[in-house]
Simulated assay, not measured.
Amino acid sequence: MSADERQLWCAVLVQAVDDATCALGKSWRRNLEIKSARDWLTKPSRDFTDVCRLAGYEPDRIRAQAIKRIDEVTPGDCPPPSKPKTPRRRRRVATNKCEQANANC
C-alpha cells in the first residue's frame, strides 16, 4: 500500500474523531452526523476494523482513544459551522432600448 493510500485512511479516521468529539446541539442533521460517527468509532464493525488496518493502526487502540475523547466532550466543543450567506439576486439590467422601454412600464 502506498503512503498516499495510508494517508487517505488516516484522514477518514481523523474526520470521524473530529465529528464524534463535537457536542450535540440544536441541529438534528448535525446531531445525526455526530451520533453516526460515535457509533462507527465505538461499536464493533468490520468497516471500522478495515479502515484502521488500512491506516496502519490497531482498531482496539483507536476505539479506546476515541471513547476517551468522546467522554471528554463538553457543551461548547465544536460549535456548528456558520451558515453560508445566500447570494443576493442581481437585478437584470436592460441591454437594449426595447428592454429599457418595457422596464419603465
Rank of each mutant, 00 (worst) to 15 (best):
P81N: 11
E58R: 04
R92M: 00
I67A: 11
A55T: 05
D50Y: 09
R6M: 09
V51T: 15
D4K: 15
K26D: 14
A64L: 10
V51H: 14
N96T: 08
G56I: 04
R30T: 13
R53E: 15
S27W: 14
D77A: 14
C98I: 03
I70K: 05
W40L: 10
L32R: 05
R30E: 15
D77P: 02
A103Q: 10
P59H: 01
A16W: 01
Y57V: 01
A94H: 06
V93P: 00
D71V: 01
C52Y: 01
R46E: 11
T86V: 14
A20G: 10
T86W: 02
K85T: 11
R29G: 08
K26P: 10
L8K: 13
N96Q: 13
P44A: 08
C105A: 09
P44H: 03
G25D: 15
A20E: 03
D39L: 12
A55D: 07
S82D: 14
I62R: 05
W40R: 09
D71H: 02
D4C: 12
Q7G: 05
K85M: 07
D60V: 04
V17I: 15
M1E: 09
K85N: 06
C10F: 02
K26F: 09
A103G: 05
L13Y: 07
A16L: 06
K83C: 01
N31P: 02
R89W: 00
D18V: 13
T95A: 09
R29W: 13
M1R: 07
Q65Y: 10
R29Y: 14
D47Q: 08
A20S: 09
T21E: 07
P87M: 11
